[in-house]
Design a binder for these strands. Structure first.
Lengths: 116, 116
DNA sequence: CTTATAAATGAACAGGTGTTCATATGTTTC
DNA sequence: GAAACATATGAACACCTGTTCATTTATAAG
């Protein structure tokens, strides 16, 4: 079985070594990928976009997205686990809100790329 | 089959209507989710991170990530399709580079969230 | 033209993900 | 306590995604 990597004659060992040393820790890159994975679903993006205007209960979100309540709940659970949203109970309703404004900033940067 | 949405008594119709009207077009949110989906993979994140220091050939990337050439090539194809990287041939090698600096900016915002 | 190397491509396979359905939990009202 | 409503949860299912293997294309050198 071959190594499936380039031979010494191909790779620019110097450059590669420098890049590797300057790259963030791999754990951090994994965390970053995990964050984007959380943002990489249209339902979750729509939820976060809706919440950027203020807190909403599950019921509101379900109606705003025209989606079933369980689907929304499942996604909210994931978003809460990723600390992107926080929840607060008031009577029968549970209100969700963005946990901080980082998401909004990331969205803005994302739109900038799309609109290029 | 029930509607699986809240009844009129629950939803704050006013608020929901306002949120829906202020939300970006759904197509745009789909595009945004698509962008994050592209960033939501550790291999692609590592590739983009490596390229943030300058252009590299497939072989270099393969070595820098300690991954097989085909795996890297497949991901580069996707990244190119998403216009996140561009490629340039020089002899036997193909060099890849970030297509613009939006990715770097998005990464920065992402790290800010992680480091909170 | 033949050989060697870098990169790309397609098929196949395993693992992960989002929705739905059924059901449970929590809260209010009667 | 029972009924009604909002939300959460677990199982099942179909779909998507990333890697590997085998092969092909592209370029350079002998």
């Amino acid at each position: 079985m071959t190594q499936d990597v380039c031979q010494d004659s191909c790779a620019h060992k110097e450059t590669v070594a420098q890049v590797v040393s300057r790259m963030p820790a791999i754990d951090k890159l994994y965390d970053l990928a995990e964050l984007f994975k959380m943002l990489g679903d249209s339902t979750r993006v729509r939820i976060l976009s809706a919440l950027s205007f203020g807190e909403l209960c599950v019921c509101d979100l379900s109606e705003a997205l025209s989606m079933g309540q369980t689907a929304v709940s499942h996604q909210l659970r994931l978003l809460r686990g990723a600390r992107l949203v926080r929840s607060r109970r008031e009577g029968k309703n549970v209100y969700y809100a963005l946990d901080d404004d980082h998401v909004t900033q990331i969205f803005t940067k994302g739109f900038e790329h799309i609109d290029e």
